[in-house]
């Protein structure tokens, strides 16, 4: 009885070990199953999903116009204080003074890509971009101004 158990355990263990080796042996000979992606080489073919949150961007149209009214909802909704909006008073053609953005400061180094600022923006002036290669040698390069120089608010956006 003891011997039967003893040898039974030996055989069952050898069998389980061989099943494992069969599997690794199978993958050793089937190179088409390899899942590695060679990242910097496949840059051209690499397509991030549309919704991927990589950074906050502010799209400008061909007339260098954006849609940010400077309402600061995004600044309020950001949990980390990564957004700082500096506004100025601009004199409109009709003579009235209006609040416009001066600089839209974005601290990429503090951003956690939560996307809450985009949710909060009433005019969809900002979006989440797909860029993810953000590494820099110094922290100061991560502080960005999102509104382009000379840009202005698109007409009709309030």
């Amino acid at each position: 009885m003891f011997l039967k158990e003893y040898f039974g355990s030996i055989f069952s263990s050898i069998k389980s070990l061989l099943t494992g080796m069969k599997l690794t042996g199978y993958y050793f000979t089937h190179h088409n199953k390899i899942i590695t992606e060679e990242y910097p080489d496949n840059r051209a073919a690499l397509k991030m999903p549309e919704r991927f949150r990589g950074e906050v961007i502010m799209p400008h149209d061909e007339k260098n116009e954006h849609q940010c009214t400077g309402c600061q909802s995004c600044e309020l909704s950001c949990p980390n204080g990564s957004i700082k909006i500096i506004t100025k008073q601009e004199i409109q053609p009709d003579g009235k003074k209006k609040k416009r953005i001066d600089t839209w400061v974005y601290h990429l180094d503090m951003c956690t890509m939560c996307g809450m600022c985009v949710e909060a923006c009433p005019t969809t002036a900002i979006l989440m971009g797909n860029e993810f290669e953000h590494s820099q040698y110094e922290k100061k390069y991560l502080k960005k101004v999102l509104n382009k120089p000379g840009s202005r608010l698109k007409d009709g956006v309030e």
Binding site: Y27, I34, I35
Partner: peptide, 13 residues
């Protein structure tokens, strides 16, 4: 290389 192929990887290349 053996390790890599068994683990669905490419190994040193």
């Amino acid at each position: 290389k053996v390790a890599a192929f068994m683990e669905l990887r490419l190994g040193p290349n």
